[in-house]
Design a protein around this nucleic acid. Sequence first.
DNA 1: ATCATGACTAATG
DNA 2: CCATTAGCCATGA
Length: 84
Amino acid sequence: MTEFEKEVLKAVVKIPFGETRTYKWVAEKIKRPRAYRAVANALRKNPYLLVAPCHRVIKSCGDIGGYSQGQAQKKRLIKLEKTI
DNA sequence: ATCATGACTAATG
DNA sequence: CCATTAGCCATGA
């Protein structure tokens, strides 16, 4: 586990239930405004799927983005949380 | 040290 | 609005 990945996760767990943030937002949150690509890289490995709500992280343009468990699942979770 | 790889982004045509 | 391009950064080989 690298420090960078930890920072990314720490930022991700701060995302409120039912809301979404962008990769760029996370990057800025960890004081690395231009590491949004590296952020995605860290999430891609995603070892804390159950503690880090990485399904709430989407692209800045509003697109769904990717997910280790599949975009469909990601979309479902977001929609579900938005409903509750 | 160098190179390729991505769940990306912003700018340009 | 859609496609292409260049810029970006941590990570692993």
